[in-house]
Write a protein that binds this DNA or RNA. Sequence first.
DNA 1: AGGTTGACCTGGACGC
DNA 2: TGCGTCCAGGTCAACC
Length: 274
Amino acid sequence: MPELPEVETVAAGVHKRTAGDVIESVWIASHPQLFRTSAAQEVARMLEHARIARSRRVGKHIVIDLEDPAKPQPRGQWIVHLGMTGNLLVVPAEAELAKHTHLIAKLQSGRELRFVDPRRFGKLSVIPAEQAFTGPGAEPLEISLEQFVSLFRGRKSPIKAALLNQKLLHGVGNIYADEALFRAGIRPRRRACSLTRAELARLRESLQEVLTEAIAAGGTTISDHVDADGNAGFFDQELRAYGRTGEPCLRCKTPIKRIVVGGRSTHYCPKCQK
DNA sequence: AGGTTGACCTGGACGC
DNA sequence: TGCGTCCAGGTCAACC
């Protein structure tokens, strides 16, 4: 499900509904692979009796700032990665329990913050307050043209694969990589280092544009992305390349082609994208 | 060291 | 209806 716009939608929803609320107790299912960097008990200890100060997005991660409820002092950060099918929902305590619910944080307000993830590719961890979480790469919406250009200098991998590399830019996933390359008119298989400065400038513009539009639409719902309230996003109606295999290009009517780049399914217009 | 591939999971869609 | 196959928005370890 989740790339930058979807994670942004979820983080904003969680923030709106839980800021200031206090976690009374935590229930965690026994799936140790969800807790690669922090043990489940560590997560529980950090969350229990903490006040939720703020929730925000960094790359594809949701960062939840926790503080001690007595004195407003930072306690730590809860880092949530939604993986492929993960979600954070804020629901009334009596709401039906979804299958694959792996964590429930009971809130003072009577609601519950629940982590649900059928495929269990998601990851939960906690870090101390003084250790600021910055994510693995650069923010696509804030990066300057100079920085953007330097990311791809000397990179021999296909530009599509480089866009998906979270250590370069974090937050870009398969859908928006395809969409940005379509809008910029660049072939996904081009070596990153072969792109001219003008092409990279176009790519950066296209990427920022498509991400911004998708955030405004509440993200793309292919099958299971919903916001903290359970509402679907509607950016899937705006997709021009992703998932349109065989359908006419909206610019030139040539059928959209599907290939595999870096092991990921990739959609592009063989005529418009050079 | 950088680049590529398969493994990790469940479930939905499709063909027979 | 049921069974097998393929595919999926993301990483990350293990290989070349």
